[in-house]
């Protein structure tokens, strides 16, 4: 079973060995409404934890997607270019944004577990 962590900005990151897959949470897609466009990072780009990496847009809003941890982008989800609605249909699976090589696994310790995140969301309402 892979390990999933969350940020306070509602990104998720799933760890599989040295690589991590990143997307936005189910809660985030609900808040955004219909996603109409996703601007993905460039493969090969280095990102820092907390740095801008992608943009997700609905009709009335545009949100930055921050890198939960630092590393190098190795793959982006090109399906989102033609079908941005995947983010709504499957935010935490098929609607992933990018995969990255992890530069510092210690940064994962700063993030929330699934249970922590659930509690965090309850605190928001």
């Amino acid at each position: 079973m892979s390990d999933v962590r969350f940020t306070k900005d509602h990104e998720w990151v799933r760890i599989e060995g040295d690589t991590a897959t990143v997307g936005i949470s189910e809660y985030a897609q609900e808040q955004l409404g219909d996603v109409v466009f996703v601007e993905l990072p460039t493969v090969g780009a280095d990102v820092e934890a907390g740095g801008d990496a992608a943009v997700v847009e609905s009709v009335k809003a545009a949100s930055e997607v921050y890198a939960p941890i630092g590393g190098t982008i190795v793959e982006v989800n090109e399906d989102l270019e033609a079908t941005p609605g995947l983010v709504n249909e499957s935010a935490e699976d098929a609607g992933w944004f990018w995969r990255m090589e992890i530069s510092d696994a210690d940064e994962l310790e700063e993030l929330m577990t699934t249970a922590d995140y659930k509690a965090f969301l309850e605190g928001l309402d």
């Binding site: 219909d34 109409v36 466009f37 847009e57 009709v59 941005p84 609605g85």
Partner: peptide, 11 residues
């Protein structure tokens, strides 16, 4: 016109 589909227009 009734409400327009702005999602389709933007996607």
């Amino acid at each position: 016109r009734r409400r327009l589909d702005e999602t389709q227009a933007a996607r």
